[in-house]
Computed example of a mutant assay.
Amino acid sequence: MIDAPNPVDVHVGRRVRLRRRELGVSQAWLADRLGLTFQQIQKYERGANRISASKLYAIAKLLEVPITYFFEGLDDPATPTGRQYAQAFTGVVEELLAEPNGPQLAEAFLSIRRRSIRKGLAELAPAIAANDQAQAPDNDREAAQ
């Protein structure tokens, strides 16, 4: 049985992907500067492989963010928890914004003024997702990375 990735590794990987895409740089660009393969960057971004402290430091330097950037949205281990609900949605929002059409989708949704139309769209999206999962998988996500 294969263990699922650690949620902290997944979160850090998502933040790497988010920042890399904000800067408009490819996985190959980042991998080249780190002396890695782009496949290793893919694994980091999925949380499948843990990023060592030294690699995270180098990534932060290349992506021009403080180390703390990668941990934003996680509960501070020195304080009591209680933000799981907000934290779960922070991850969803980060993942949406990291997708190629994510920012455009979010902005379009927020520009809809009528609450009933927003509600209808929110109900339609899960139906589309369920239908998509029932179909044969396509390679749009992999090609976009």
Score class of each variant (00 low, 15 high):
81 T>F: 07
38 F>N: 12
78 A>F: 14
131 N>D: 09
32 D>L: 11
131 N>A: 14
98 A>P: 06
98 A>E: 04
15 R>S: 02
81 T>H: 06
104 Q>G: 14
140 D>M: 07
141 R>D: 12
97 L>K: 09
142 E>T: 00
74 L>I: 11
95 E>C: 08
129 A>K: 03
17 R>G: 01
42 Q>T: 14
127 A>G: 06
36 L>H: 05
7 P>K: 03
44 Y>S: 00
58 A>V: 01
108 A>M: 15
19 R>Q: 15
124 L>K: 08
15 R>G: 11
130 A>T: 04
5 P>I: 12
84 Q>D: 07
103 P>Y: 11
112 I>R: 15
107 E>Y: 15
143 A>Y: 05
50 R>I: 14
108 A>K: 13
12 V>S: 07
127 A>L: 14
137 P>N: 13
112 I>K: 08
10 V>K: 05
99 E>K: 04
141 R>G: 08
33 R>M: 10
80 P>G: 09
105 L>I: 15
70 F>R: 00
23 L>Q: 10
16 V>W: 00
135 Q>R: 02
131 N>L: 12
138 D>T: 02
24 G>R: 04
99 E>G: 11
99 E>V: 04
82 G>M: 11
87 Q>C: 00
60 A>D: 05
34 L>Y: 04
116 S>L: 15
99 E>P: 02
99 E>W: 06
86 A>V: 07
128 I>Y: 01
71 F>Y: 11
6 N>T: 01
144 A>M: 02
1 M>G: 13
94 E>L: 13
68 T>E: 15
72 E>K: 06
98 A>I: 10
99 E>L: 07
29 W>S: 07
84 Q>P: 00
104 Q>H: 12
19 R>D: 12
105 L>T: 10
11 H>R: 00
77 P>Q: 05
67 I>W: 11
